[in-house]
Amino acid sequence: MTIIQNNVVINRAVADVYSFLADLNNHEQLMPENIYNWTSTADEARFTIKNMAKLALRISLRTENKEIICVPSEEAPFEIKLAWRLEEQGAETRATFVIEAQLNMMMKMMASGPLQKLVDHQVQRLKETLG
């Protein structure tokens, strides 16, 4: 299992960050430019990653003010789980974005870099969006 993650501290209450992340409609604001054909509801999102794949994700678990887990709702190129984990730190919130992917050696070489860039981009955009 390949685990890719990054975190950021946001100057907002954990409930605010959780409520933003718990609705997949908001996740489009966190996506990089190479994501297009975005459609979403509060529980599901579909999009295309330029030159890579189409993905359909659904929220499989919401633990209030703690964690949101997304998994593919349709067949994906590899087994993957995306999780936002939140920790209250006084008036601030530490948000950690974790991607767990089952990658063979060839896929790991090809996908690790883009997945790390995605994680880094999303945590940075979350901080910019929520201040």
Rank of each mutant, 00 (worst) to 15 (best):
F47W: 08
F47R: 10
F47A: 06
T48M: 12
I49W: 04
K50T: 13
K50S: 14
K50E: 15
M52P: 00
M52W: 07
M52S: 08
A53E: 09
A53L: 13
A53T: 11
A53V: 14
A53D: 03
K54H: 08
L55D: 01
L55F: 15
L55M: 14
A56T: 11
A56W: 02
L57N: 04
L57D: 02
R58N: 00
R58F: 05
I59C: 07
I59N: 02
I59G: 04
S60K: 15
S60N: 10
L61K: 13
L61G: 00
L61R: 12
L61C: 04
L61M: 10
R62M: 03
R62D: 01
T63K: 15
T63Y: 07
T63S: 13
T63P: 04
E64G: 00
E64N: 05
E64V: 04
N65V: 01
K66V: 01
E67V: 06
E67N: 10
I68V: 15
I68Q: 09
I68Y: 01
I69H: 05
C70M: 14
C70V: 01
V71Y: 01
V71H: 02
V71E: 04
P72Q: 05
P72R: 08
S73D: 13
S73Y: 06
E74P: 03
E74A: 12
E74Q: 12
E74K: 07
E75Y: 06
A76L: 08
A76Q: 07
A76R: 09
P77H: 13
P77T: 11
P77G: 10
P77V: 07
P77Y: 13
F78Q: 12
F78D: 13
F78N: 08
F78K: 01
F78M: 08
E79D: 11
I80P: 00
I80D: 01
K81I: 14
K81E: 15
L82F: 06
A83M: 12
A83T: 13
W84T: 14
R85W: 00
L86S: 04
L86I: 00
L86F: 00
L86V: 00
E87Y: 05
E88T: 15
E88I: 09
Q89A: 10
Q89W: 03
Q89K: 15
G90H: 10
G90E: 12
G90C: 11
